[in-house]
Structure formats: C-alpha cells, structure tokens
C-alpha cells in the first residue's frame, strides 16, 4: 500500500532518525580511518621508541631525548592529512546518499574528538614506556614534547595537549578540503590562511609542535602555566570546529559537465 500523505509528526520523527543515523555513519567512517591508520602510526613509533635507544646503547652511546619527540611533532600533521583524505572520500557520497552538511559536520567533529583522545592516550603511554626504558638503561630522560609548565601533572598535560592539537589539526585539514571544493583552486588556497592561523595558535597554546618552536626561536613567547595553555587550546578547538562548519555549510556540488 502506498501512503499518500505525510503528517508533520511523521516527518519530524523521520528527520530526527535519519539525522542521527547519518551522524553515526560519518563518525564511524572518519573515526575508523583515523583510528586504524593511527594504530599503525603509533605502532611504528612504539617500535622506534624502544628500538632506537637499544641500538644506541648497543653502540655504546647515550641519548638525551627519545624518539617520542618525533611522534609528538608528527601526530597532528598525520591527523591533518588523514582528516583531509577521509573527508575527500566521504563528503560527496554522503551528500549523494541523502546526508546533510550538518550531519557531515557533527560526525566529523565527533571523529576528530575521538581521534584526539585516542592519540593523546597513545602519546601518554609511549611517554611512559620511553621514560621507563631510559630509567632502565640508567639514562637521564627529559620530556621535550610540550613546553607547558605542568610540574607533576606533565603526563596528563602532554596527553591533553596532544589530544587537542590532533583534533584541531584534523578539523583544519577537513575544512581545507571543503574549502577547495566550494571555492576552487585560487580562492581555496587563499582560504587556507585562517586554517593555518588556527594551527599556529594551537601550537602556541600547547607550546608544542613546529610553530611553537618557531615562535619560541623568534623570542616571541615565554613559558605559560599549563591551565591557561590548555584553556586557550580549547578555545582554538572551538574555533576550528566553527571554521569547519563555516566551510561545510556552504558546500555545493556543481554539475560535473
């Protein structure tokens, strides 16, 4: 039998149900890409973190800092490229399958937060592994990743810094992808700048990553209490989310011919 009319209530229930399903689906897709490929990333760094000191020790050398510094520098950029790729893959099929830009955004935001937390926890675990390895080898271990003044809470602050940084980078990467689709090559490139500013800001707030090093090298910034830094980082995270929504909400698919 065919229904001929749809009531307002049926319409609203339907809309809420399909929206929730679409959000979950985006979160699942983008989240699984970042988690599965992220697991490989962190797995490699675990091996490197353990193997390099052992090899150096074998050669009779001593290390001042471990390989985890590299992971902390690389993780946000890795998340940025994964975000870019995941959104590029999914955004057109998502709209074609009847998803909205809003469900795309909410799902992507959830995925970015989940990835951030997962990468943050992974970073904390690896820091602990590295510290105990250095202790076992009788070396002095210095944590290089985060420049926030955290005292005893250094581990949690590092993890939180990585988490927020990863989420921001991922959101900015996804926003860049959406920007290019809407604005084409020239304006799209120009519109990378606000995203870049967010990356610099979050690096600055957490005192980690290449941009923080650059700013520090220029003598522009000093130390910062961990609480204030993380709070600023959260503000940047909110801005990055807003930036992604700003780019997605106007996304149009032009005819291909």
């Amino acid at each position: 039998m065919t229904a001929t009319t749809v009531t307002r209530a049926e319409r609203d229930t339907f809309a809420a149900r399909v929206h929730a399903r679409a959000v979950r689906r985006v979160a699942r897709y983008v989240g699984s890409v970042t988690l599965v490929i992220g697991a490989v990333f962190w797995g490699i760094f675990l091996v490197v973190t353990v193997a390099v000191p052992l090899i150096v020790r074998q050669a009779g050398g001593v290390m001042g800092g471990g390989a985890m510094t590299g992971a902390e520098y690389a993780a946000p950029w890795f998340a940025l490229s994964l975000g870019t790729i995941a959104l590029a893959t999914v955004v057109v099929p998502h709209l074609a399958a009847g998803g909205t830009r809003r469900s795309m955004f909410v799902g992507a935001l959830v995925a970015a937060l989940v990835a951030g937390v997962a990468y943050g926890v992974a970073a904390m675990l690896l820091l602990l592994v590295e510290r105990s390895l250095f202790g076992a080898l009788g070396w002095e271990w210095e944590q290089l990743g985060s420049g926030l003044d955290a005292g005893d809470a250094w581990l949690v602050v590092s993890g939180a810094g990585t988490a927020i940084g990863v989420a921001v980078y991922m959101l900015v990467g996804m926003a860049a992808q959406a920007t290019y689709r809407t604005n084409g090559v020239w304006r799209g490139t120009a519109l990378l700048l606000p995203g870049l500013a967010l990356l610099v800001l979050v690096d600055h707030a957490t005192r980690s990553g290449a941009f923080a090093d650059a700013l520090g090298g220029l003598g522009l910034v000093g130390d910062q209490p961990a609480g204030a830094g993380l709070l600023l980082a959260l503000v940047v995270l909110a801005l990055a989310a807003a930036w992604l929504w700003w780019q997605l909400r106007v996304l149009r698919l032009r005819p291909t011919r």
């Binding site: 319409r11 809309a15 679409a22 709209l95 074609a96 009847g98």
Partner: peptide, 17 residues
C-alpha cells in the same frame, strides 16, 4: 539541509557518487 527531503531523494549523476 533538510534531512527529511534529502533522505527521500536519490540523485544519481552519470556513474553515481
């Protein structure tokens, strides 16, 4: 941006998206 409409409309362009 209307999920009620978009979930009820399937557009296939050439080879599908």
């Amino acid at each position: 941006e209307n999920p009620w409409v978009t979930a009820n409309v399937q557009l296939v362009r050439e080879s599908g998206d």
